[in-house]
């Protein structure tokens, strides 16, 4: 029986997959994106959030049984309404064994994996094997830019992209549009080129920058240091995807 640390369980998540859905946010992430709007998701351990409304603990330990039991309370409701469970975070691949065990204990339900793709191949294949749909982040194709803004190389991410396509699991590419960082024509074109024609691609979602990104940093005891101009207008270049024959939308 494995255990895992979860920092949020959000009922009625509308941007994380179809139907009535609950999203489980895993704590811990190998990336350090400058625009991260869930700073408490980065560190894998429970931590105190100190706000004007008091102090609370972000992050709870669950055994696989406990988490599955909690989610199964609503299984009938979600299944009856075109929905299911999404595993997000943080990065679910960091707790792949736990997530896989939870899924194995869930009543048969639609599963979405919301992931950066940054993880070991075997962890990724493990979760692909029990996922119905993947929401896969692609941020920056240029490796140097990726290291600079996200804190890690993107080789694993691009490799896992191939693996996912070959495995036949349907996926949606999610591109966070960060002004002046990810929304350049070059980067968007590079993403389009990378994914065009891949079997399993459902569509590309462009996610406009969340200007409230910095809201939780102070409470988490962290400093929000965006190395880009938050107020710069976004380049909502859907054309580069449309021209490549890719179904694209601004989420």
């Amino acid at each position: 029986m494995t255990s895992g640390i979860v920092f949020d369980i959000k009922e009625f998540a509308v941007h994380d997959g179809p139907g009535l859905r609950t999203t489980v946010f895993m704590k811990g992430c190998p990336l350090v994106c400058s625009w991260c709007h869930n700073p408490e998701s980065q560190w894998g351990q429970p931590q105190l959030m100190r706000t004007a409304n008091g102090t609370r603990l972000a992050g709870s330990l669950y055994t696989a049984e406990q988490l599955a039991a909690r989610l199964n309370q609503q299984a009938a409701l979600l299944k009856a309404n075109e929905g299911g469970i999404t595993f997000s975070g943080g990065e679910p691949l960091m707790q792949a064994g736990f997530v896989a065990e939870v899924i194995s204990l869930l009543e048969d339900m639609h599963i979405v994996l919301d992931t950066s793709g940054f993880g070991r191949e075997r962890d990724f294949r493990l979760l692909l094997g029990c996922t119905d749909l993947v929401y896969y982040d692609l941020k920056l194709i240029d490796p140097e830019a990726h290291v600079r803004y996200v804190g890690q190389d993107n080789r694993w991410i691009l490799r896992n992209l191939q693996i996912m396509s070959e495995a036949g699991v349907p996926f949606v590419i999610r591109v966070p549009l960060v002004p002046g960082v990810t929304d350049s024509d070059e980067n968007l074109a590079a993403i389009a080129e990378r994914v065009a024609g891949l079997p399993g691609l459902q569509r590309v979602d462009l996610l406009p920058y969340n200007k409230a990104a910095g809201a939780k940093y102070e409470a988490a005891g962290m400093e929000f240091k965006p190395d880009y101009d938050e107020n710069r207008p976004l380049n909502l270049n859907t054309g580069v995807f449309e021209r490549a024959g890719i179904n694209v939308r601004i989420a």
């Binding site: 009625f12 009535l20 009856a80 309404n81």
Partner: peptide
């Protein structure tokens, strides 16, 4: 009360409608 940001995409309209149906199913 739902934040109006829920309604940012057309899929969400269906999801809200399903929530209403769930209210009745329950």
């Amino acid at each position: 009360e739902l934040s109006d940001t829920v309604f940012r995409n057309p899929e969400a309209t269906r999801q809200v409608a399903l929530l209403v149906r769930a209210f009745a199913q329950l």
